[in-house]
Design a protein around this nucleic acid. Structure first.
Lengths: 244, 244
DNA sequence: GTCCAAATGGTCATACAGACACTTATAACG
DNA sequence: CGTTATAAGTGTCTGTATGACCATTTGGAC
């Protein structure tokens, strides 16, 4: 039950977005270079303060647009987690609600509003820098943690949902879709088995009847996203060292 | 990237806890009766304003203790989701971070601080009241939605984690553990198959070597919680109408 | 002493995933 | 213009896990 804010305090509310995509076969994240203090010059997740009477989801989409020059973002976007540890922001008590988005292709990023720059980074190049101050690492605030959480969520999400399809443009081939899993999970999947799994799941993908030929190899059938949202049974991720 | 709060606003921060347990074979939730406006007299989730320099997790545990008379809460507690829709609280912009907790047994609830009353309710009796203003329904604020989200999270969480064990006191029998799944999922499970599944998962439970006899039936072996946190493969939930 | 309920111990058939051999079709190569 | 490399697509085999279900055990309830 709530009582009036006695002993409590007013806080600032922000949203930060972990927008993921696949570039050159590798999982990538959209980052912006901060142009103002704190953490000026450091790379950070796109995001910013939530406006009065603004919904969180709307705020996340707005920030993506204004800070990265994207025309709009209509891809998948879900709430990830809220970060509110005291001291995470030197300006005072700032609570950040993180969102996780999946985008197909590369919606040409560019510096927007007060972001000095905006570009895609391979997630591997951002994470696990082993203490070195190189590339975009370390991220501003506690956003390194947020990124890790987002990547982890993405990895598990594509196991039991059809959201992997939101990483590719329509129409797509099964090879395209398989590349998504391989990039996000950083594994190699058996093409025939992957095909069997996807096609045996009703509503995962829809055969458009068309085909496409890219370079060598047999032309691949083109599919569009199906109506199914969940996978039963789930797509199994290889190399599980089980438990604990 | 963040800029100073221009056009943004200060908000109030609260935590609300969906604390679940199993009572009489049914999934139950801890609710408190509000003693003050807004929503005075209505039932609500335990929770309240986050104090200055207080961590969210700590705030959730504190509210559980002060509002329900629990001596302490050392069970499982995880962040559920944040609710910040403008207008959800008549007092102004109040952002609530919901937490989800699992508790064994019935840690005797009682009215605490400014809660008029505190008690366990069967989840079924709270949800789906079909418009009738009866029992604890409807909950204060948007907490009906929060409860629904919490229950859904709990249902899926026990599929792929060993958290079902946090609903029972140690030591427990496999029948006790099976009752947890049956209560949370509202299904009947085959005892021999359930036993096979649990015992074939390394680290799920640990045989204490002791046995207990409760009324009729063959005495059951007593187990304690094992070190495993995840289930691979997951415990399968019956009656999946698949997809969409 | 007999009966009942719940735990426990098995069996059998099926579904599914992993490994892998093989065929097909197209573009690139020379 | 034939050959080759590459990726899509087809099919088989096998081990594992699960659902259905029968049988046995055991201590308290009656």
């Amino acid at each position: 039950m709530k009582r009036s804010p006695a002993g409590s305090e007013a806080v600032s509310l922000t949203v930060d977005v972990v927008l993921l995509t696949i570039r050159y076969g590798r999982l990538s994240v959209l980052l912006v270079e901060r142009g103002v203090e704190p953490f000026a010059g450091r790379w950070a997740l796109p995001g910013g303060f939530v406006l009065a009477d603004e919904d969180l989801n709307a705020a996340a989409r707005r920030e993506l647009v204004t800070e990265t020059g994207l025309a709009q973002f209509d891809g998948h976007l879900e709430q990830l987690r809220t970060y509110a540890t005291p001291g995470r922001d030197p300006r005072g008590r700032v609570v950040s609600v993180a969102y996780l988005g999946f985008a197909p292709e590369v919606p040409t990023p560019a510096a927007g509003s007060d972001a000095a720059a905006a570009r895609w980074w391979h997630v591997d190049d951002v994470t696990a820098q082993a203490g070195e101050r190189r590339g975009p690492w370390p991220l501003a605030f506690d956003q390194g943690t947020i990124l890790d959480d987002g990547v982890e969520r993405a990895r598990s999400k594509i196991e039991y949902t059809t959201l992997a399809t939101s990483f590719v443009d329509e129409p797509f081939t099964l090879g395209d879709l398989r590349s998504v899993y391989e990039a996000v999970w950083a594994v190699d999947l058996d093409a025939p088995n992957f095909r069997r799994k996807v096609l045996s799941t009703p509503g995962f993908v829809i055969d458009t009847g068309r085909r496409i030929s890219v370079g060598r190899g047999k032309p691949a059938a083109l599919y569009s996203r199906g109506p199914a949202r969940d996978l039963h049974p789930a797509m199994l991720r290889p190399n599980r060292d089980d438990d604990l």
